[in-house]
Write a protein that binds this DNA or RNA. Structure first.
Length: 865
RNA sequence: GGGCGCAUAGCUCAGUUGGGAGAGCGCCAGCUCGACAAGCUGGAGGUCACAGGUUCGAGCCCUGUUGCGCCCACCA
């Protein structure tokens, strides 16, 4: 060790993540450790495709948690020698990105329409080049070991080819089609959106009851609606076929107030006779249900509200041009004037809103592209049923399957400019349509000019191809051969349908295999107060601030420790715990590295009685430590493999803090200061294995400490992960040291109870056992062969009279313990007196109870006055 | 309307197949012990939401109730 580095170890009593992290990360990247060769079969390799963050995005806690999980598993497998790829990239995020750039334009007083499509798209690209890598840089801060050398983007050249290939093939199979259909129109983003991008919220509206006169009669049908302005588009009135009140009216007509249109009265099961009057106005142009009913009965479809949210010509001169909300007031006023408004009352109901823009959805009929899902879903259902794609926790498997079995056509076209422009060309002259991966020159039929479809594809259409498009599909690339299918996906449940399900369908349809073997659905980290973390609520916790404050390792540890299968509140204490652990490990390492005896040729020595060629004379505590570490490695590794990060972190924390630092280091300090060989070998080996085990979770501090370890050859990031080594297990050593620890604890507790001065060394005599040396040292007792009368007993240890101890405190303590024991004896006796317990409980449980009773009685006797 | 999840220490959460309730933080008391005061040692603190049931025995299994959260769904 050179002097400068040694000096650093000696002087730096606190671990400083800020000083370490940037430097270490640069070393990893320089080492090229994160960029694998495309070799070997996928089942031997490990690959993960990062859920691509939006280019507009900033790293939030969800990314940080997800990234911590993936990185833990990726790093563990890389260290195990698997050829490991973690694909990185970003998503063009159509609506979000377009909105950001439009906002910039607005600040300049411009609009995208003024700019024109081509110039606007150029502006977005320019924006992307400048700001789009922000989130990638933020992943680096987290320590994520992604392959930064081959970053992908859903709009890069190769990716577009994949998207067009998929579109063309699905079109040729007849799955993709164009239709006039009811869609969720988002007036905010000015585009259609899919069902999955709609959320419903409770809204208080007014329910209006309107009288529709029946033609040729003085009867009226009273219908109820919260959106009276849509009555202008009514084309029927429906009643339930079983409703006797209206049986005679079915087949007759109503007259639509204000408009005068004749509306057929139809019978349809959908109508609930219990609701209102049992008569339902039918507006196929502006209500999804009515649309269905309308198609069933062949009703006319009239649109009165346009994509701009204003009434169109169909609404009639009186209302055309008004925004829908104003039109509503005008229609109500007009109805009131005509005496058709029977009633109005407050009404709370759920209303669809756009998740993208927050605007209230305007259902309307428009010409859009759709993708039929039934055929794609069928195999995607099977692979999950057969666990070829395993979804954990189990309950999400059912959620996935339930949704897939009810899947409906997907509206894939968006009225945006930023995205994959749909690869369809129209000939206006002869009405031919061309779908192609490459733009056709001219119309093949009439040689006329072609015009490309204006719409772009839903962003999720391209995201669905992520696991294979990033690997070069549709080409048969070496990357695709080596890394597809990917190994696992960790994700938040909110994109289970939006993204995960669609990847499974597309993976099976195109490369022909599942996109990943495991899906782990992790918890959502809520704000500290239990609300959702959200920018608009101001409840977000910024991961980068946490990294600045506590270090990336601390944040990673904290997030993994607080993760769960259920939602959890963000816990500052867990992040702090991570920071404390990094500091603890740093200081323990200083103690070790500055005191061990080390020579090059003994670096791999393993003290263990089972390894006669090594150090047969190793002390029992050395064997205890290595055995405990071995158990911890096995358990932590298993937990990481089953995505149980919370318990993995807790176990490794407990091992380092309690067993390594609180016990082993304290026990061996005298030997360590003597630079004793066995203890040095034990500590160097243990430290190496601990650093390896913890590295996937806390990569920076472990790498930094490793840089001071005398056995170091190369970076820890590519050092061997500690493999299970059964020869290090030593149950006898574990049992023996455990007894010593127990005794030390009881003796310390006894001292505290009788308020013995902290620095005093008390006289004692051990009977029937020979306590290990450390017991007396750590508990501050001097064991004597003879000595005077005992004044108290702690297990096999008799404590002797001493001027340091208050006799009254001892007496009180003894009486308290006797009372405790008497109570335990009563409890055990009662239990054993219960014949049904003795008869029916398993023999070993009863036997255990008897043993306890004996123990309590023996101790009570020992303490008898 | 359907489905799922959650109620355990002051706080945030663990509790695997039923067999004397745990962690971290916080709190109390004591410690400048040659790594770490972001430390060390000891301690207090819980009718496991409520009510029934099954069982020799229930935080855990069953039924119901209450409260909170999430997802799905076309009742105007």
């Amino acid at each position: 060790m050179d002097d400068v580095r040694r000096k650093k170890l000696e002087e730096q009593t606190r671990y400083e993540p800020a000083e370490v992290e940037g430097r270490i990360f640069a070393e990893w990247v320089e080492g090229g450790y994160f960029h694998p060769q495309a070799e070997g079969p996928p089942e031997e390799n490990l690959s993960v495709a990062i859920p691509p963050p939006n280019v507009t995005g900033a790293l939030h806690m969800g990314h940080a948690l997800n990234g911590s999980m993936q990185d833990a598993l990726v790093r563990m497998n890389r260290m195990r020698g698997r050829n490991t790829l973690w694909t990185l990239g970003t998503d063009h995020a159509g609506i979000a990105t377009q909105a950001v750039v439009e906002k910039m334009l607005a600040a300049e007083g411009a609009t995208r329409q003024e700019l024109g499509r081509e110039a606007f798209v150029e502006r977005v690209w320019a924006w992307k080049e400048e700001y789009g890598s922000r989130i990638v840089e933020q992943y680096k801060r987290l320590g994520a070991s992604c392959d930064y050398e081959s970053e992908r983007f859903t709009l890069d050249e190769g990716y577009v080819r994949a998207v067009y290939r998929v579109f063309k093939r699905l079109y040729d199979k007849g799955y993709i089609y164009r239709d006039h259909y009811m869609v969720n129109w988002d007036p905010g983003s000015h585009s259609a959106i899919s069902d999955l991008e709609v959320e419903s919220r409770e809204v208080e509206d007014t329910l209006y009851s309107i009288d529709y006169p029946v033609e040729g009669s003085d009867r009226v049908l009273t219908v109820a609606t919260v959106r009276p302005e849509t009555m202008l588009a009514d084309t029927a009135v429906a009643v339930n076929p079983g409703d006797e009140r209206y049986a005679d009216l079915v087949g007759k007509h109503c007259v639509l107030p204000l408009v005068g249109r004749r509306l057929p009265i139809v019978a349809d099961e959908h109508v609930d006779p219990e609701f209102g009057t049992g008569a339902l106005k039918i507006t196929p142009g502006h209500d999804p249900n009515d649309f269905e009913i309308g198609r069933k009965h062949g009703l006319e479809e009239i649109g009165v509200i346009g994509p701009d949210g204003r009434m169109n010509e169909g609404a009639g001169e009186r209302f055309a041009g008004l925004p829908a909300a104003e039109a509503q007031e005008a229609v109500v006023a007009a109805l009131r004037e005509e005496g058709r408004l029977r009633d109005e009352e407050p009404y709370v109901h759920s209303v669809p809103f756009s998740e993208r823009s927050g605007a209230r959805i305007e259902p309307l009929i428009s010409l859009q592209w759709f993708c039929r899902m039934d055929e794609l879903a069928a195999p995607a259902i099977e692979v999950v049923e057969r666990d070829e794609v395993r979804i954990a926790p189990e309950r999400w498997k059912r959620v996935y399957l339930d949704w897939m079995r009810e899947i409906r056509p997907w509206c894939i076209s968006r009225q945006l400019w930023w995205g994959h422009r749909i690869p369809v060309w129209y000939c206006d002259a002869c009405e031919e349509t061309y779908v192609a991966e490459q733009p056709p020159e001219r119309c093949g039929a009439c040689d006329g000019p072609l015009r490309q479809e204006e719409d772009v594809l839903d962003t999720w259409f391209s995201s669905a191809l992520w696991p294979f498009a990033t690997l070069g599909w549709p080409d048969e690339t070496p990357e695709l051969r080596a890394f597809y299918p990917t190994s696992f996906l960790t994700t938040a449940r909110e994109i289970l349908f939006l993204w995960v399900a669609r990847m499974v369908m597309m993976g099976l349809e195109f490369p022909g295999d599942v996109p990943f073997r495991d899906v782990y659905v992790h918890s959502v980290i809520q704000a500290r107060d239990g609300r959702r973390m959200s920018k608009s609520l101001g409840t977000g916790v910024d991961p980068l601030e946490e990294i600045d404050r506590h270090g990336a390792d601390a944040l990673r540890f904290g997030l993994l420790a607080m993760s769960s299968t259920q939602d959890v509140r963000f816990s500052d204490a867990k992040v702090q715990q991570g920071a404390d652990l990094a500091n603890k490990l740093w200081n323990a390492s200083r103690l070790i590295l500055l005191n061990v005896k080390f020579e090059q040729n003994q670096s791999r020595r393993v003290p263990n009685k089972a390894r006669q060629d090594r150090v047969p004379a190793a002390a029992v505590e050395d064997r205890w430590l290595l055995s405990r570490l071995e158990a911890t490695i096995g358990s932590v590794t298993a937990k990481l493999e089953e995505y149980d990060f919370a318990h993995a972190t807790q176990e490794i924390y407990a091992f380092i803090w309690s067993e390594l630092c609180d016990w082993y280091l304290e026990i061996v300090k005298p030997r360590l200061y003597d630079r004793e060989e066995d203890v040095s070998a034990t500590l160097l080996l243990a430290l190496e294995r601990v650093l390896g085990l913890l590295h996937p979770i806390m990569p920076f501090v472990t790498e930094e400490i490793w840089s001071h370890h005398p056995s170091r050859q190369g970076h820890l990031a590519v050092h061997a992960f500690p493999e299970p080594d059964g020869s290090l297990r030593d149950p006898e050593a574990e049992a023996e040291v455990r007894l010593g620890i127990e005794l030390t604890r009881r003796l310390r507790a006894w001292r505290d109870l009788v308020e013995a001065p902290a620095a005093s060394v008390l006289p004692a005599r051990a009977e029937g056992i020979e306590p290990r040396e450390f017991v007396g040292r750590l508990a501050r007792f001097e064991f004597e062969r003879n000595g005077g009368d005992p004044i108290a007993a702690v297990g096999p240890v008799k404590i002797l009279a001493s001027t340091e101890i208050d006799a009254e405190a001892v007496a009180a303590r003894l009486e308290a313990r006797r009372e405790e024991l008497r109570s335990e004896v009563r409890r055990a006796e009662g239990k054993l007196a219960n014949e049904r317990f003795v008869e029916r409980a398993p023999a070993e449980v009863v036997e255990e109870e008897r043993r306890k009773l004996e123990r309590y009685r023996a101790e009570l006797e020992e303490l008898a006055e």
